[in-house]
Nucleic acid binder design. Structure first.
Lengths: 93, 93
DNA sequence: CATCTATTTAGACAAAAGTCTAATTAGCGT
DNA sequence: ACGCTAATTAGACTTTTGTCTAAATAGATG
């Protein structure tokens, strides 16, 4: 199920930081790597998980890969949380 | 930070299933265990993580421990998701 | 074409997470 | 006090996850 993949993806603080980067602006893999004290290979690993979860998407420009946030996928997540936290959030729409 | 703990807690499918059980009704640790093909010790481990994340709380009755869902803690989670993906229909850079 | 640059993949390794059995704690009811 | 039941904790083990280095891929540019 996609929910599991989504939650696994956002359960890691580095991947959440990547998402927050991409919320500001689209970025190349290299530019994302520079934000973190990790090798490009490791960041690529995180990007793959985020992409497989549908949270980000990529396009190519020259030999750069540009990543961008796929915000619509958070819908399902919100639905799940609403159902659980349900009644206590009815006022928050 | 609490967000990390919360997300780690709900990233496991068994823990989510426990939360969904508790959404139906409060349950003893033993009753929760019976729902899963796991030993009581393992379920206890999951319950501890959920409790430390503030997602559930417990009371004692006789020598039973009764767990219940702590729905209000989903607030912070919702806030984070809203900030990232909540306005997906508005902007797409 | 040759080489350089950006990125990903492969493989090894370490750390974290999940599971079990066995032991322990805690409270109940004779 | 004793044994019984519910639940947790301790310790060992396995699996999963995150990280690195080194190699491979893809494409651009001289």
């Amino acid at each position: 199920m996609a929910l599991n993949q989504t939650l696994k993806a956002i359960s890691d603080p580095i991947r959440r930081a990547i998402l927050e980067c991409l919320r500001q602006q689209d970025m190349t893999a290299g530019a994302i790597s520079e934000q973190f004290d990790l090798t490009p290979a490791t960041v690529s690993y995180h990007l793959k998980l985020l992409r497989e979860a549908g949270l980000i998407s990529q396009t190519k420009d020259k030999n750069f890969v540009i990543y961008s946030l796929n915000a619509s996928v958070f819908e399902e997540l919100l639905t799940w949380i609403y159902q659980l936290g349900g009644d206590s959030h009815e006022n928050k729409n």
